[in-house]
Design a protein around this nucleic acid. Sequence first.
DNA 1: CGTCGGGTTGATAACTTTCAAATTTCGTGG
DNA 2: CCACGAAATTTGAAAGTTATCAACCCGACG
Lengths: 243, 243
Amino acid sequence: MLAVQSPFARKLGAFVALSDTELSALDRLYGRRKVFPAGRDIVHQGQSAQSAYILASGWVCSYKIQTSGSRQIVDFQIPGDFLGLRSVLFRTADHNIEPITQVEASEVPAKDLFETFSTMPRLATAVLWAASRDEAMVVEHLVGIGRRDAKERMAHFLLELGARLKLVGLGSATGFACPLTQYLLADAMGLSAVHVNRVLRELREDDLLTFQHGQVTIHDLDGLVLLADFDKTYLDHDGPLLR
Amino acid sequence: MLAVQSPFARKLGAFVALSDTELSALDRLYGRRKVFPAGRDIVHQGQSAQSAYILASGWVCSYKIQTSGSRQIVDFQIPGDFLGLRSVLFRTADHNIEPITQVEASEVPAKDLFETFSTMPRLATAVLWAASRDEAMVVEHLVGIGRRDAKERMAHFLLELGARLKLVGLGSATGFACPLTQYLLADAMGLSAVHVNRVLRELREDDLLTFQHGQVTIHDLDGLVLLADFDKTYLDHDGPLLR
DNA sequence: CGTCGGGTTGATAACTTTCAAATTTCGTGG
DNA sequence: CCACGAAATTTGAAAGTTATCAACCCGACG
């Protein structure tokens, strides 16, 4: 085992038990470390993409814009997450990626990625796994928007976010720091910003949680889980699935 | 090249140029061919899954049920599509799969799948690709539910379905046969069945399309594309992306 | 025939958006 | 440290969209 593992290696290791050879191949994948300022898109819809990124610090969101101008945020990425894998696979980006805060990310050139896959099949499988977990999150998001009302949706979203942050050491059972504005929340949940505001107030008045000053504080975890019908099994599992 | 390719091999071949060796490895993947009657679930949420399936004929849907009882259909699968890949990767199913019509599908045991991945890395990459295309469809679905009103949503959905069916030779520019009930449509689009009915009537009254007696007939393709803000680039590309 | 799963329609209720305006927060330069 | 402007949050009222409830129709099928 290498002494220090990157968050990304740790994540893949949760799916596939990785050998030292594979771990160091992973390390070599990392290209230049880049810094992006908040607000300016890293990737544009339709742009051809030669690199993916692995997020080291900061938050980003991936979203799609419609010609009408409205946008839907598909997901937020937090440290350890892979950015733009799909864009690399398809050569061109089908979505935008915007840093919400300042962001540090390591570039992973497409060429290196494919070469590594062909020599280290287990790594390809591990990435397939990670991609599938991402898909599971998108599916859960879809269910949320399709079949939960605004309040349940918000509760579910914040619970999921909290669970993910806890996995990478950025949150606890009582809350977490959250740089998302109500506009971002609205675009993620398919609501208007005004309604997001009202829903947050209701959750506060119900003594379920408080989201103020960039801080989410959970007052009644059980109440939230009940309200949101939250089931976190899709987020975690114990130990590598492939040995 | 093998004389006859399965729909699945054809689909993977669109992503990665496959050698004869790889093609015959794919063929060996196919296990027993099974037949499922309409209506009885093939896979249940929470069930442990040892096999995936490749759909040979018929339609199925994957959906999630909430404890409240409402359900959200995540996607419909048509011949050539992979079923339950995520369930196999995670050992347990996070969604249900229900045949809408009678269905024929080939079983793919998890063990064989992983063995094939480890000896044929390019196949693993190809499957990663196919999984990513599926994710792109889920993302588009998410955008539809989050940011399109009922009419746009329906138009977009039927356009996408038509495009997919055309790819496997089951539809044309003027329409396609469609076994979906208004209840299924409602669960897929996050609407009530009653509203689906109204929306279909509006589309008919606008001379855009007719959906009656299991047949979708497109009257005004351009009008629909305009209404739905439809962009099919995420569904197709020309030739294998990896040679 | 009678029933049952779809489909269709109208009336009403619920939820969410939009518009408009006030208030607070926060970073920056004086 | 304070003032200022921009961005974010908050609230009310009115309008719009979609759900729900309740009927009724129709064709398939035993």
